[in-house]
Design a protein around this nucleic acid. Structure first.
Lengths: 118, 118
DNA sequence: CCGTTAATTCTAATATTCTAGAAATATGGT
DNA sequence: ACCATATTTCTAGAATATTAGAATTAACGG
């Protein structure tokens, strides 16, 4: 499945402590974003290393970059994160807090489904 | 931060297409779980490869295993997934699909926060 | 045009992950 | 005790990821 692959790619991107920190920082920065240099100073990561991580996050769509003069502004992309979480809640039916509701979308080609109550 | 590391570990564990498929399958199987061999046949993964992936998922707490005679039953652990999503919604304040309700537990020691409305 | 600051790309060493066959271990039935 | 089935551990090769210094490119100010 294509969507599974994309979701896995996002999860993998966030599955690195440094990248998760970067993403968290950017989410907190909101639409204003943060310049690469700012991130670098805040997280104390070498420039080249940070650049690679940002590229990785950008590649999967979790971060977008736009130039602002001599600095590059990074902004977290909520759409991608939402899509990722949507897949998790739909396909891996997690309750995301408390009151879950299994959607049971019938597309398991092998057909599994069991669910006896513990 | 400790919690960030644990969250990253879970994300990384699910960030592999095969492992994400395994986890999804187990969530769908509910508390009844699935035997290793069943998973193997359903996903068509070599036994040793599957065993490694399951161990990985088990290590981060996303899956638990218990023996049932000659087979080993695998069960998805919702608590761990919930903890992971809780971190994401709290620290990376994402709306989780639609009716999110961010818990806003005040413990952001670094305190950044910006969020101008686009 | 030149220097400065910002960031990326190049390069390479190290480390980790993924994969899967083969061997080993465990359980239960006969 | 022995065999069949289930699963794990051992092993190792190939592939990727991580890290970061050095060189490079880009934009602006003077």
């Amino acid at each position: 499945m294509m969507e599974l692959e994309r979701t896995a790619a996002c999860l993998e991107a966030l599955g690195n402590p440094t990248r998760l920190s970067i993403y968290r920082l950017l989410v907190r920065a909101g639409q204003a974003g943060k310049a690469v240099g700012q991130i670098q100073r805040m997280l104390d990561v070498p420039a080249s290393t940070l650049s690679h991580h940002l590229k990785h996050l950008e590649m999967v769509g979790l971060v977008t970059k736009r130039r602002d003069g001599t600095t590059h502004l990074c902004v977290a992309s909520y759409e991608t994160m939402d899509a990722m979480l949507a897949f998790l809640t739909r396909e891996c039916c997690v309750e995301a807090g408390a009151g879950a509701t299994v959607d049971a979308t019938a597309d398991a080609s092998g057909s599994v489904a069991a669910n006896d109550g513990a």
